[in-house]
Design a protein around this nucleic acid. Structure first.
Lengths: 123, 123
DNA sequence: TACGTGTACTATGATACACAGTACACTTTA
DNA sequence: TAAAGTGTACTGTGTATCATAGTACACGTA
C-alpha cells in the first residue's frame, strides 16, 4: 500500500540508474545475467511489477535484452548514434550548467567532475 | 480540464527553467521585475496558480523575491554556499555522464559543451 | 477608493506511481 | 513428462502530483 518516492524520483527510475551505473562501470558486463524480476524485487525491497517496469524501460533503451523464459542480460552497446537521445542529453546538460552557475560552481569544477568520472570508469 | 505535461516535465518546472535561464544569461538582471502572476499566465498560456507555484518555488531557491503588494523581482545572488544543492547537482551530473557514456558522447564533447555555455553567458 | 500585487483556499479531473494478486507462454531442470 | 523459474500482461486499489477553475484576502500604489 506504500508508495514512497525518495529524492523526487520514481523507484523504478532509481533502480534503472543503479543498473546503468553498474553497466557503465563494468560491474555488469555484456552478457551478464541480471537477477530475475522476483529475485531483484526481494533484493531491492520492491514490488516485482516495479522491477519489471524498470527492466522493460531499460530494454527500450537498449541497455539490456530479455530472452523468453531464460532471463534478462546486459546487451551489447549499440553502434547506432541516437540523435534524439543526445539532443535531450544536451538540453539536460544546459539546465545543469544553469544550476551550476547559480550555485557558483565553476566551469573548472565541472571539468574536473568529468575527468574524475572517466578516470574511475577506466579500471 | 487539460493538464498536458510536455517533455516529461511539469509545466511549472519548465517555466522555472526558462526564468532561471534568463537570469543566468542576464536577460533578467538583479532587481528586474517579473510579469505578475496573472500577466505571466496570459503570456505563457498557463493557469495563474501554475505560475504562482513556479514563482514560489523560485523564491525558495533564492532566485527571486516577492514584495507584498508590489510584485516579484530578481534577487541578488546568494553568497552562502549551498552544500546540499551542490551534492544533488553532483549526483545528477554523474547520472548525466553515465548516460553520455552509453550514448557514446566523448568527454571531450562534454568539455566543449561547458565551454560553449560559459562563453555565451559572458556577453 | 480603485486597482494590481502575491497568496491561500476549495474543488475537479487527469495522470503517474507503487503495490497486491492472478494468469499465461516460454525455457530449463529434475 | 512434470515442476520450477523466466518475463509479461492483466485487473484493481490507494496515494500523490499536476493543472485547471474559481473565490477570497491583505497588502501597496496610483
Amino acid at each position: 500500500m506504500m508508495a514512497k518516492i525518495q529524492h523526487n524520483q520514481p523507484l523504478y527510475e532509481q533502480l534503472m540508474w543503479r543498473i546503468k551505473a553498474q553497466v557503465a562501470t563494468s560491474v555488469l558486463k555484456v552478457g551478464d545475467k541480471l537477477p530475475s524480476v522476483r529475485e531483484m524485487a526481494l533484493i531491492e525491497g520492491l514490488n516485482p511489477n516495479t522491477v519489471a517496469k524498470a527492466y522493460k524501460a531499460l530494454e527500450g533503451q537498449q541497455v539490456i535484452e530479455t530472452v523468453a523464459g531464460k532471463g534478462t542480460f546486459v546487451r551489447q552497446v549499440d553502434t547506432v548514434v541516437d540523435e534524439k537521445a543526445i539532443n535531450e542529453l544536451r538540453n539536460d546538460f544546459n539546465n545543469m550548467m544553469i544550476e551550476a552557475k547559480r550555485l557558483q560552481v565553476t566551469p573548472e569544477q565541472l571539468h574536473q567532475w568529468i575527468d574524475e568520472f572517466y578516470l574511475e570508469g577506466q579500471q
